[in-house]
Amino acid sequence: MRYAMVIDTLKCVGCSDCVVACQTENNVPMGYCRDWVTETVNGAYPTIDLELKSERCNHCDNAPCVRCCPTGASHIVEGGIVMVTEDECIGCGACIESCPYDARYQHPDGYVDKCTFCHHRLEKGKQPACVEVCPTKCMYFGDLDDPTSEISELLKTRKHKVLAPEAGTSPNVYYLIK
């Protein structure tokens, strides 16, 4: 089992529903967020490329945040999900410094928090909240180890990229770009 997310940039409209849905699902404190939306504009009027995409923790296979955590609060669970245990975290910030995506933040209560791939929902057989809400249905979630899963199919047939591959983290959030 290797969970991964695939996001189709050709369909994402940058509406940020994924951000609010995460907020209400995971009780993310106001002013913080586990996912966010970026916009990249290239070119000059009227020949312009616009890319919108929803970003979050990449649940990296080779996760520096897990490596550098001194207490083991940051750890990897079944399916490759990178998790943080609140009451093992001392709030040293090492994992935040280590993440090339700045995907983590200090919760106002002191511990470090980030996207969990909605682990609590997966357990109940549901999709992550952001995936489930996305009005353009541009987010897909599933098992990379299963060659017949929707995401495996998409990655087989569509051109894709990951963010900052040169950081060497082996991210598990993929972006379809063609």
Binding site: Y32, C33, V37, T40, V41, N42
Partner: peptide
């Protein structure tokens, strides 16, 4: 010109900018 912005959901205290 290239432009890269957050559409939403960042500007987290102590993380951004």
């Amino acid at each position: 010109m290239q432009e890269e912005i957050f559409v939403s959901g960042r500007h987290i205290p102590k993380i951004d900018p």
